[in-house]
Design a protein around this nucleic acid. Structure first.
Lengths: 106, 106
DNA sequence: TAAATTATTGGTAAAATTACCAACAAACCA
DNA sequence: TGGTTTGTTGGTAATTTTACCAATAATTTA
């Protein structure tokens, strides 16, 4: 894999994480697997909108899904995303006030 | 700060990281501070394009800049971004072949 | 001070993302 | 089988992002 493909791939995954709705879905799934309907009920958006957000997360390899009866169960595949988000919060702290150090930056 | 503001802020910062050009700039700055002209020379884009990418990174608090003579020196403010990217690469590995575990997921 | 060099800003067109509605597909139940 | 529930897919309009060109600002040098 060449350097440009690598950076494009990274970009795709990070973009998948970057949307507010998808961030909230990731946090919710971090608590445990959820039905589509449970995720849908967190928001005021159309079903199709949430479904498409989930598809983006799936295509990025961040979540997986399996059918169970009428329901669809969603699962967070990559728990490290959460630590990733903690780091982002440190960036925020750093920006707001340059006193809080990123815990991941030893 | 309420939950929605928090998620919007996270989103903004992650979006700032998500672009291929900005990812490459971050990696380059991780090696050390760089002049604008050095960063500009990495790409085939217009000066103004690179300048605007840098502005987005600055607004997100990821890089800072200071003038030195005619040049502008750019600096990576938040080194933890790099570990963040390592995690992303684990997501990629996970997706490609579910054998490699994310090192950050203990 | 005038000219040259470096980087940023303003404006705009093209491309990508997002959210809705409608139609559809899959699984269940009467 | 026909109807109901659940979630996805297709199409489209609105918004956001991106990259270029031109003009501007800041600094140095002649």
């Amino acid at each position: 894999m060449n350097k440009f493909d690598a950076v494009e791939l990274r970009s795709k995954i990070i973009k998948a994480i970057a949307h507010p709705v998808r961030l909230m879905i990731i946090e919710e799934l971090n608590k445990g697997d959820k039905l589509f309907s449970q995720l849908f009920n967190l928001f005021d958006f159309d079903k199709s909108t949430i479904s498409k957000h989930l598809l983006i997360l799936k295509n990025a390899g961040i979540v997986s899904s399996k059918k169970k009866g009428l329901d669809m169960i969603y699962k967070l595949e990559t728990k490290c995303i959460i630590k990733f988000l903690n780091c982002i919060d440190r960036v925020i702290s750093h920006s707001i006030k340059k006193t809080v150090k990123c815990m991941m930056c030893k």
